[in-house]
Simulated scan of single mutants.
Amino acid sequence: MPLPRVSDRRPLAVTSGDPAGIGPDLVLGLPRSQPGAPLVVLGDLDVLQARAEQLRLEVRLRAWQPGDRASGEALSVWHCPAGANVIAGQPDPATARGTLTLLDRAIDGCLDGTFAGMVTAPLSKAVICEGADASFTGHTEYLAQRSGIERVVMMLATPALRVALATTHLPLREVADAINADDLSATLRILHKDLRERFSVPHPRIMVLGLNPHAGESGHLGREELDVIIPVLDALRAEGMQLSGPLPADTAFTPKHLAQQDAVLAMYHDQGLPVLKYSGFGEAINITLGLPFVRTSVDHGTAFDLAGSGRASHRSLQAATRWAMTLAGQ
């Protein structure tokens, strides 16, 4: 089926991430991988041009402003100055505010209808914290705050596996205190709703992991399962949700269990994501559920050591862009 004309569709915003990382390398490949797609890259035009020359890429860059049409023949770029001289592979806190400006413009554009959704290339939390906002913990939390949303859910997905998180970027010693009935219930409701409405899963089946080894071993290895997780699951099952668990994380990711599930809810970041990334690193995407707009991202970091080398894989950004277009109905 041919794509609709670019003029018929609102563009997706694609933020270029940390200017010293591989984000600029990746977005410069979009015209080749997504020909004719209505995309607007948010980044520093000079940085993108310099990176294209460094990589010996023949890419036409076209300055874009709100109200313009996204070009199908050139890479439309909404110029956002980086704030400092950029050298590929050398992170600089002086660029932090410029990187946040990319996000702010993309968020505002999604909220006011300029953009159909957004795709984010990787940024460095350390650079942002050092140069702009010491409280910054990641894209997911920042998007929720700027959008006025109390709770969102981070989910990574491959063609074969979806893993959502009950908590995201927290120190491990804080995770247990963050598992409470209200937040866990809200997370499961968001996951269930978006699986139905955005992923067209009519009756979502969600497998919930326990927090403790052996899912607490009946309280002998921790009481979070007995005191919080099981009561929440029982209450939501009574409303009609199909929930299994809490299951021990060390045996949950097996074909027997996964074949019966549409998504897995892990209690913390490094409980669920190592398995997903092992099974599909470089092809997985990060999706923020619960926002009033579509947001997808790559499954990897800034890879400063690869910036400007031509060796960075484009697969995750390409997948994130395709998924954003599908979820936004573009």
Rank of each mutant, 00 (worst) to 15 (best):
R5V: 11
R5W: 12
D8T: 13
R9M: 09
R10M: 07
P11R: 01
V14P: 03
G17F: 09
I22R: 02
G23D: 03
L30N: 06
Q34G: 14
V40L: 01
Q49V: 13
R56S: 13
R56P: 00
L57H: 04
V59T: 00
A63M: 09
A63G: 06
G67M: 07
G72W: 08
L75E: 02
V77E: 12
G83D: 03
I87L: 13
D92A: 00
L102D: 03
L102H: 13
D104W: 11
I107F: 04
D108W: 14
D112K: 12
A116H: 04
M118W: 01
V127R: 12
C129F: 10
G131E: 00
G138S: 02
H139Y: 04
Y142D: 11
Y142E: 13
L143D: 01
L143W: 05
G148I: 07
R151P: 01
P159H: 04
A160K: 14
L161Q: 08
A166P: 12
T167A: 00
P171L: 01
L172T: 01
V175E: 02
V175P: 02
D177W: 00
D177I: 00
I179H: 00
A186K: 06
A186T: 08
T187K: 10
R189I: 03
L195K: 09
R198G: 10
R198V: 04
M207W: 09
G210Y: 04
L211V: 02
N212H: 07
H214P: 02
E217K: 10
H220Y: 14
E224Y: 06
L226F: 01
D234P: 05
A235N: 11
L236K: 09
E239D: 05
L243C: 10
L243D: 08
T254N: 15
Q260H: 13
Q261L: 07
D262I: 05
A263C: 04
M267G: 02
M267D: 06
K277T: 07
K277N: 09
Y278H: 15
I285M: 13
I287C: 09
V298F: 02
H300A: 02
T302V: 08
S309F: 10
A320N: 08
W323N: 14
Q330T: 15
Q330S: 15
